[in-house]
Design a protein around this nucleic acid. Structure first.
Lengths: 195, 195, 195, 195
DNA sequence: CATGAATGAGAGTTCATTCAT
DNA sequence: GATGAATGAACTCTCATTCAT
């Protein structure tokens, strides 16, 4: 597998990702991918032998791409609160772009296919986010920005709330106002109510 | 289109419900239902003309069945906290029976089919639950059982957390301990931390 | 089979006739007839065991009903030309009512099912019409109204023309003007061209 | 949707034509065609996605094949009468091969599906034939072979007669003698009766 | 006689997957 | 490596026909 192949594989992954974002997981057929990529049926099978295999690689790729979104954008003089706000804002952006995230495809995939414990990138990512948030909260408490007795519990709680909003957005829909209200609720819980 | 046999329709709904609980929504074919019911292909079509129609009736039935789970079991001398605990316990029970709830099928259905705003039973049920929780919190605050500044916000927050746990359970899985920890976190937030 | 049965059978035939006029032969299902008659599925089978059987009786009934359309309406002082014009006018009326004649259903039926020679009511009717026309032409020639060397040949020719127009009307469609032009052509051939 | 194999498409059209000739239009299923072609179910759908689409292409092909039957076979020294006789003979041949013409399928198709005015090949072909016959009659009159006052009217009349014979042949059946008699009648009307 | 729920054969259609070129 | 025509299994849906009531 020379350079050329790797390049083509990458191209297929990028294109397939768009398809999964558009149509979820179960609705995507090999035909859809073939047509989106404008390659031959047989050509696709050379690289991926099922939508499942294809999706798992797309998912892995996506996880890697978005993992470090964080560290990049934070200036040195940012407060912890700023960082948290940045994180929540990014989450909100994801939730609200209807047809442009992999969440639905991922949920659909996971409903039908339990991944082996260690290899579940979604679980891993959730736990990573919890740890990261936990550290952030610790730092916030230390600097006196946040009031929080149980930073680990709170970190987990926040992640569940975000997950809850995400699934609500993907199913019954949610307005931007509702999302904002919820995020404000989270922040208030940390900085203390202004009375 | 007469009544046919209401009894048989009911039987099909009950049986189909099991099938949807087992396999989700997209994986269920009319053939699956036919086989589960042990009736003929054409026989099923006499009552329901697509998996969608069938699922929507199953969902409606399920909502009606579980709506009043609440009122039943509450004794007269129960504290508000007792009631809340009962509610959370019921939620926990639902979350943890892996293959035995309609949540996955419902999510799958909603991913692909947005229901008209007024007619979305899932949304309606979410909002009903928020309202109910809100009243409960108000009562709890009044009786001095809970400390809570924003009961509506908290009610919503709790529901999102529950939703988040539910989807987590259905996708990457969750241990009973984790669920308990999360529920305890919720309760502690209301009654104040015991230090 | 008492009175009641005969009455019901008649009712079914009348109703089915409408259905056949509306939808042709091959598109009519027992279900269509059952629904049009508002009787039970089994009830229909009590009288007719297939659309074929049903159609054949409808056809027979129709032939009987329309056979004597002729003799009725002719006054004593009518010329032979008047009678011929009346006949052609009636034919024209039939051709032009798009969805209201049995012709299409009959053609469709006969395409697929050759009837035993002696029992073909359509053939019989065609031949009867030829004979009748022949007599008419003979009478016309005798009275000096028509010029015609071969009255039998002409009678047959006219019937084929009418058949040709009828099928054209049922398939590619035909305007009233075209029909009129054709009928005028027939008449002119008999009475001699006016120059 | 590339060209696939033009050859195979042609093969399917030829084979399907035989099927339509054998069974008409409404009785033909994709399965029939698949079996006649000895290809796979899916294979057929690669080229045609319904019996309607298939039939329309068969019809178009057939029209093209038979359109120029004429010009070919006419020697330079042929009289107009010879040409007309040739035309009628060809028509007769078509009428009499019971199960071997597309007429029935075409009628059946047109009963149920009105084609857009401009695109109806049957209508177009009828009109072309009328024009052609008209020219032929004009030429015959000019050369003193025919006596005919209204060549257009006569051309139309002849076509309706032929249509009438054709449908009669397809439905109640017709003997070769009857057809001959009818064609003789037509010719006699043009050349004048021999007494 | 009459009913209409139930049956099951069969038509239409789509797609993952293969394989000769 | 790459192609895309071909395959066939699987699904959806309809209807003539039967049969217990």
């Amino acid at each position: 597998m020379g350079e050329k192949s790797t390049q083509k594989k990458q191209f297929i992954l990028e294109t397939a990702k768009k398809v999964f974002m558009e149509k979820g997981f179960k609705n995507v057929t090999m035909k859809d991918v073939v047509e989106a990529c404008e390659i031959s049926r047989g050509g696709l099978y050379l690289y991926f032998s099922s939508t499942e295999e294809l999706f798992l690689e797309v998912l892995k790729m996506d996880m890697e791409e978005t993992d470090d979104v964080f560290s990049d954008k934070i200036g040195d003089d940012a407060t912890i609160t700023d960082i948290l706000l940045l994180f929540l804002k990014e989450q909100k952006r994801e939730m609200l772009r209807k047809k442009n995230n992999l969440a639905v495809a991922t949920y659909e995939y996971l409903f039908a296919n339990k991944l082996p414990k260690g290899k579940n990138p979604v679980k891993k990512r959730f736990e990573t986010a919890v740890m990261m948030l936990n550290k952030l909260l610790d730092a916030g408490v230390e600097r006196g920005e946040f009031i929080c007795e149980d930073t680990l519990g709170t970190a987990r709680n926040i992640m569940y709330v975000l997950e809850g909003i995400k699934i609500t957005a993907s199913t019954v829909g949610i307005s931007e106002e509702k999302v904002d209200a919820e995020l404000v609720f989270i922040i208030k819980g940390l900085v203390g109510e202004e009375e």
